[in-house]
C-alpha cells in the first residue's frame, strides 16, 4: 500500500528483500541505505528494517525496506511481513546455483501473499566473484523475462548496480502508483464525497446567510 503523507516525503513504499540465506540481502540493504558493507555481518533474525528517501519525478519517495531472514524455517513467520509490500527484490547468489533455483519458490511465496501489481526485481548478487560464477546472466535474464520481473546483477561489495536496482524498483512502483492514481481520478465522479462533508457545508451556508442579513 502506498499512501501520501504530508511529512517530509510524498510517497511511502514498502519493499521486501527476500531470498535464500547468505545471498547478501542484509548487505544490499546496508549498501543502499547507509552505503556500508560488512564481510562479517550477523545473520538476520526474523526481520530487519531500514529506510531511505529518494527523488522520483520531483517527488520525494521514502522506501521502507524490510530485510527478512532467509532460512526456510522462518518462512512461517516472514510471510506475515509481506503484507502491504508494493515492491520486492528477490535475491540470489550468482556463485550458488541452489539459491537461483529457489527463486521460483520465493516468487510463488511472494505472489501468494501480495497484490498482483507488486513490482518484482530479480537480483543476482555477488557479481564481483567472477571466477566462481555458477549462474549465467543469460539464464537469469531469460528466467526474469518468463516470470515477468525486472532483472539486474549487483555487487554489494563493489557497490555496483545496488543503487540502480533499488531506484529502478522504486521508480516502477511510482509509475504504477501514479497510473493508478490517474485512473482513480478519472473515475472519481462516482466517489462518495461523504455525507459528513455536506452537513458541514449546509452549516456554512446557513451562517453565511445570517451574516449577510445583518450587514
Amino acid at each position: 500500500m502506498a499512501y501520501k503523507a504530508d511529512d517530509d516525503y510524498d510517497y511511502l513504499f514498502k519493499v521486501v528483500l527476500i531470498g535464500d540465506s547468505g545471498v547478501g540481502k542484509s548487505n544490499l540493504l546496508s549498501r543502499f541505505t547507509r552505503n556500508e558493507f560488512s564481510l562479517e555481518s550477523k545473520s538476520t533474525i526474523g526481520v530487519e528494517f531500514a529506510t531511505r528517501s529518494i527523488r522520483v519525478d520531483e517527488k520525494v519517495v521514502k522506501a521502507q525496506i524490510w530485510d527478512t531472514a532467509g532460512q526456510e524455517r522462518y518462512r512461517a513467520i516472514t510471510s506475515a511481513y509481506y503484507r502491504g509490500a508494493v515492491g520486492a527484490l528477490v535475491v540470489y547468489d550468482i556463485t550458488r546455483n541452489v539459491t537461483f533455483d529457489n527463486v521460483e519458490r520465493w516468487l510463488k511465496e511472494l505472489r501468494d501473499h501480495t497484490d498482483s501489481s507488486i513490482v518484482i526485481m530479480l537480483v543476482g548478487n555477488k557479481a564481483d566473484v567472477r571466477h566462481l560464477r555458477a549462474v549465467d546472466t543469460e539464464a537469469a535474464t531469460a528466467f526474469a523475462e518468463r516470470e515477468n520481473t525486472y532483472f539486474m546483477e549487483t555487487s554489494a561489495l563493489e557497490s555496483t548496480n545496488v543503487e540502480k536496482a533499488f531506484t529502478e524498483v522504486l521508480n516502477q512502483i511510482y509509475q504504477v502508483v501514479s497510473r493508478k492514481a490517474l485512473e482513480a481520478t478519472s473515475h472519481s465522479t462516482s466517489l462518495p464525497k461523504g455525507q459528513t462533508i455536506n452537513v458541514g457545508k449546509d452549516d456554512v451556508s446557513a451562517v453565511k446567510k445570517a451574516g449577510c442579513c445583518s450587514s
Binding site: T196, I197, G200, K201, V204, V207, A210, G211, S214, S215
Partner: peptide, 27 residues
C-alpha cells in the same frame, strides 16, 4: 481523510463566522 476534510471545512467556517462577528461588532 474525511475527518481531516471536515476539520478543514469547520476551520474555514469558524474563520468566516469570526469575521462576521467582527463586522457586526463594528456596526
Amino acid at each position: 481523510m474525511v475527518q481531516q476534510d471536515n476539520r478543514r471545512l469547520l476551520t474555514v467556517n469558524v474563520e468566516q463566522l469570526e469575521q462576521e462577528v467582527i463586522e457586526l461588532q463594528q456596526a
